[in-house]
């Protein structure tokens, strides 16, 4: 799952990212991009709980929240 998340985020941001990447450091990563990431993960059957979406600030958050959504 972690690899799928890393792959999806990299693809959507068009950048090489890693587990420690955070939103604040990446100019292109705005809230619209977060929604795009969540939608793309949803299509790959990785669910981020709805209430957690606004709290996503990093790749680590995505991984933790996706584990909660399992």
């Amino acid at each position: 799952m972690k690899d799928k998340i890393l792959g999806t985020v990299s693809e959507i941001l068009g950048l090489d990212i890693n587990e420690n990447s955070i939103m604040e450091d990446i100019d292109k990563w705005d809230s619209l991009k977060t929604l795009q990431i969540i939608m793309a993960l949803d299509e790959k059957n990785i669910s981020i709980p709805l209430e957690k979406i606004a709290k996503v600030k990093s790749v680590k958050d995505l991984i933790i929240f996706a584990e909660e959504g399992e």
């Binding site: 809230s31 619209l32 977060t34 929604l35 709805l50 209430e51 979406i53 606004a54």
Partner: peptide, 14 residues
């Protein structure tokens, strides 16, 4: 603030 509105909606509308 799109994410702020989104957060309010998902917490309240359902």
């Amino acid at each position: 603030d799109g994410m702020g509105v989104f957060n309010f909606v998902v917490r309240n509308v359902p």
